[in-house]
Design a protein around this nucleic acid. Structure first.
Lengths: 334, 334
DNA sequence: CGGGTTTTTGCAAACGAATGCAAGAAGGGG
DNA sequence: CCCCTTCTTGCATTCGTTTGCAAAAACCCG
């Protein structure tokens, strides 16, 4: 049966037609008579023939491979997104070539270079920034790029995020409405647009209410950092009575420190609000009040944007998807 | 600069050498004089040339792409493994083409078929079983397959697991040593080797101690199922005083039910032992006593096995990596 | 400086499929 | 039944590389 490499020529021979005929049978939208189709199909089945995607890609210029660059997977938001992305693309006949990149510029450049070697049809970056130079290279090569959950001020890039400014504002307003006046913000990494936007929204709402934040400290989207920030912030004599944390991943760390190291109760002593609404946030051990990022819709938007640019003549687009506040038990309810 | 498609021929023209020369400069281990190398490198840099991986793959028969098939990512063990795998392979110049497959046979077959279309150099399956037919096809195509965290009785397949039988035994022994006599087991999915092996080890140790398990129920490696199993098991009048759960992911669900629905205290009322030691297990909100699967070593072994078969003449191998018991606070300590 | 070795080089043939072109087959209408 | 149109088909070229082969160049040593 299916031996090492079956080529279209072998199928052609068996079916008694030319190699072109075989190709046409396997190329959607090419012309072939009913009889040829049948004979070729039969021969292909017998030999276990499947078209070689590399050869096809070489000549058509499309590989149906999407490059995915992601910085880390320990924040649960990303595996969830990855799973959805992968499924959505698979449904449309595309496949994901995956790369882990630290968030350093040159590592990312290296990785994008390798992606381009494989002639990917498009690139999705998750929680990763593109340097200007890199964007230029992708644009020159005609490879559309869409940034998932990160924004950047460059018209050549598509981006899909939640409305982070609104989200930050919403978090602050909720805490204020709960009667809190000593509110701190453990910020998302200030090197990222999401971190900055959420912080900006938070500040905005605080200012509007005439309340000054107790502190705004960068938690780097990192569990350890967030924990140590929480320790500093809450060990002193006049500690905050509420904290908005830049994402759920850090919020869990903060809650751990508050409850298990400092013996504080939530929401009795302190209110905590997170951002993302990852699955773990709804588990009773945390039961975290948080701003939801609608992953599913974000993923759909990402795939749509990419497909529009690959298959149609779509232009880069910037989308913000609104996320609602999910009220649970980690923060006092107004 | 870097225009749409730069080919080796263009570089050759600019450098004043033949196209073959360019190829040789970019092929490790090919002969080229110092002078040629220099001139070609310079020209390549100027034009932004990079070898087309598709064309290269077409002729060499190696793509440096590894197909990865994974069933789900909601169990934290897999994202962690995925990240390590991806990094390890990247270091060796390989890349991951990722596929999500449910655990249904035909879905997997479909996915493996698509993988083969891309002429992958090897396949890693994580928490996924291979049908006999599929294994045959891969073997015929000369594509090595290594199963990560799953075993199968087929000499053509490599596999890397932890020593699940020993692990299950260890868990039971630990609970027995803690003085428990009413011990239940929420089993890992019995359709998987890991689930069966852990259960077998557990049974073995119980039998050796002359203690009959209170219950052994399949939790399907699924959070909801595990939770409802826990509800049934622990709501009755004479509930177990200890439970060994087939993996951490389910153990968290069980703990949630025990503590937050049934108001039981751990390890006071009930002892819980899990399997995997995912990062979350060490967070104080769970602080789960568990059998560690040494992911890093498992990943290294996986990559080694794969490389041996791809680059050398290695035979398929079956590896079991021993994992130790990590004692935390969810179970009574002897 | 000559004869023999070793390196470097270009030529041309792969790899496996898609596709423009022109010829052949089939179909349709009067 | 013939002519004109529409479908199918095969031929040959193309995509961007690697690589075997043989010629050319460089090197070495006496």
């Amino acid at each position: 049966m299916a031996n090492d490499k079956v080529t279209s020529a072998q199928v052609a021979a068996l079916a008694g037609v030319s190699q072109s005929a075989v190709s046409r049978v396997f190329t959607p939208g090419a012309s072939a008579s009913k009889k040829t189709v049948e004979r070729v199909r039969a021969a292909a089945l017998e030999l276990g023939y499947r078209p070689n995607a590399l050869a096809r890609g070489l000549i058509t210029g499309r590989t149906r491979i999407i490059g995915l660059v992601v910085a880390y997977l320990d924040n649960q938001f990303y595996p969830v997104a990855l799973e959805l992305l992968s499924r959505a693309l698979q449904e449309r006949g595309y496949h994901i070539l995956m790369f882990m990149a630290g968030n350093t510029t040159d590592k990312i450049a290296e990785v994008v270079g390798e992606l381009m070697d494989y002639q990917v049809d498009g690139i999705i970056t998750a929680s990763v920034a593109m340097s200007n130079d890199l964007t230029t290279r992708c644009a020159a090569a005609g490879i559309p790029v869409v940034m998932f959950n990160r924004g950047q001020d460059d018209a050549r890039l598509s981006e899909v995020t939640s409305d982070n400014v609104a989200g930050g504002r919403r978090a602050a307003e909720f805490l204020l409405a709960g009667g809190h006046r000593r509110i701190a913000h453990v910020m998302g990494w200030q090197g990222s647009s999401t971190g900055r936007d959420r912080a900006a929204g938070f500040s905005q709402a605080m200012r509007a209410a005439g309340v000054a934040p107790v502190a705004m400290i960068d938690g780097m989207y990192n569990r350890e950092t967030a924990a140590s920030v929480a320790r500093d912030l809450f060990s002193g004599p006049d500690r905050p009575d509420a904290v908005f944390v830049g994402n759920d991943h850090m919020a869990f760390a903060v809650m751990d420190v508050l409850r298990f190291e400092l013996g504080l109760s939530l929401p009795g002593d302190v209110s905590v609000v997170g951002y993302d609404d990852v699955p773990l946030a709804s588990w009773p051990a945390y039961d975290l009040t948080t701003i939801r990022q609608p992953v599913r819709r974000m993923v759909d938007a990402t795939v749509d944007a990419l497909m529009a640019q690959i298959e149609g003549d779509g232009m880069p687009r910037k989308l913000q998807i609104d996320g609602s506040l999910i009220i649970r038990k980690s923060a006092r309810t107004p």
